[in-house]
Amino acid sequence: VPQTPIRAAMNSIQQLRVELTSASDQPSHNLQVYFKNCTVDPSEEITKRVEELGQVFSQKFAQAVGQRSEGLGRKRFNLGAQLYYKVMESMLKSEEKRLSVQNFSKLLNNATFHTSLLACAMEVVMATYVGNSLKNGAFGRGSGASDSVETDLCFPWILGVFQLHAFDFYKVIESFIKAEPTLKHDMMKHLEHCEHLIMENLAWRADSPLFDLLKQSCEEGAGEQAEPPAT
């Protein structure tokens, strides 16, 4: 059977579904143990955040694609939530091994971390649906309304939906790729493309937290001896 752009996208969606077959859109037992080990249990906040972001995502999806598509948006969000919990568990296992600690209270109570991780999972789901052939222009952006709408839902659309700074999204990308070894070559390249877009453009917009951090870094370093220019 010849490989068409639609068939390629459908195969990618099928693969994603298979990989998430055993995953749940609720925290696994292992994750719940990590939550209970925290000084401040983050369970309620995490569940509440996922519910709220799920509603926001479904509404924005419906606004972009059509009001009758809210159910479709909800299905995609549930896939993203499954991936979010799966990757979170994998990340915590790696951190436990690396740091020899089991209490991740500070990280797991950091709202920006969770929103960034969920946004990255959603980006993987959305990019899978759009399909790599479509993204690479095989259909052309002007060939049909639905094609261009789907393409418009790709990065950085999710940042606006979750009201997330590109700089914070950037921070999860590498750890996400390390924690999810089943990610396909094309998806890794897509996330790398997002990374470049942030580095070259999005992180330097006027409202970016990067400027405050640079200022803070300059102030902290003011009393220290300046490093040689080459460094």
């Binding site: 950091n110 750890s175 390390k178 790398e192």
Partner: peptide, 21 residues
């Protein structure tokens, strides 16, 4: 994973990036 350029050092992880211990 050979397809991606990893920039983090081995001693760095997600905890450090979100300013955690």
């Amino acid at each position: 994973s050979q397809d991606y350029h990893f920039g983090l050092e081995e001693h760095e992880g997600i905890s450090e990036l979100f300013d955690c211990d």
